[in-house]
């Protein structure tokens, strides 16, 4: 991550049209890529949970889905702070921004529903919301290819006039790797917390059963 920050702030050349604020790109896009990957991870874990009913998949799903909210928020907030000086507005309801916002809302609602449902209902209800969220990801990704948007067309793989200078590519690659490493570290911590949570829930249930049976 330090290498990425060095490249972003000290090494990569400043973009000619937008100036220094274009450097937001090196965190804005990797944050989106991580949130998409996390959404797919959570979605696949949810499908596996529905098929196998193994709680480890539910733990993986909650860890991934919380990181969708974290990295999705970073993506949207940083994008908004890039938009203000360049477009003159913080936000516009174009296809890309709206679909990204809906994705964030789906995952925020997942977290709310997770807290509001009982342990028996939780896994299945949350898995269904999570699969719906995963289905929104291709729509977000394709939105600026399918519709005319205020958000710029794809810089990479977006057609003849798209592309980056070699130094920008290198910085982008390192930033992407750093963001995925950060995500992986956060996922490991969150999975540990999810297992602890499950342990507390199981012991609480056992304690209640013993209290009801008059043994404690």
């Amino acid at each position: 991550m330090l290498a990425a920050l060095y490249l972003i702030f000290l090494w990569v050349p400043t973009e000619a049209t937008m100036g220094i604020v274009q450097r937001i790109f090196y965190f804005h896009v990797p944050a989106a890529a991580v949130s998409f990957t996390a959404a797919f991870t959570g979605g696949i874990a949810s499908i596996l949970y529905l098929v196998k009913r193994d709680s480890k998949y539910d733990d993986l799903s909650v860890a991934a889905n919380e990181s969708v909210v974290l990295f999705g928020s970073i993506n949207i907030v940083m994008g908004s702070m890039w938009a203000k000086p360049i477009w003159g507005i913080w936000w516009t309801w174009d296809a890309r921004l709206t679909s990204s916002f809906i994705l964030l809302l789906i995952y925020a609602s997942y977290l709310v529903v997770r807290r509001a449902t009982t342990a028996e209902q939780r896994g299945v209800v949350c898995a269904v919301i999570c699969i719906l969220g995963m289905l929104d990801v291709p729509l977000v990704y394709m939105s600026n290819r399918l519709f005319r948007t205020q958000h710029p067309a794809p810089v990479m793989g977006g057609g003849e006039n798209s592309g980056l200078a070699p130094q920008m590519w290198a910085t982008f690659g390192v930033s992407m790797a750093a963001m995925f490493l950060l995500w992986w570290s956060i996922m490991r911590i969150r999975l540990r917390v999810a297992r602890l949570d499950r342990g507390v829930e199981d012991l609480t249930r056992r304690t209640h059963e013993l209290v009801d049976a008059g043994a404690v």
Binding site: M18, G19, V21, I24, H28, A31, M78, M81, P85
Partner: peptide, 12 residues
């Protein structure tokens, strides 16, 4: 626009 860059990374 330096302050925008600072605030964007700061908030992140």
């Amino acid at each position: 626009n330096l302050s925008w860059l600072f605030w964007a990374y700061g908030v992140g």
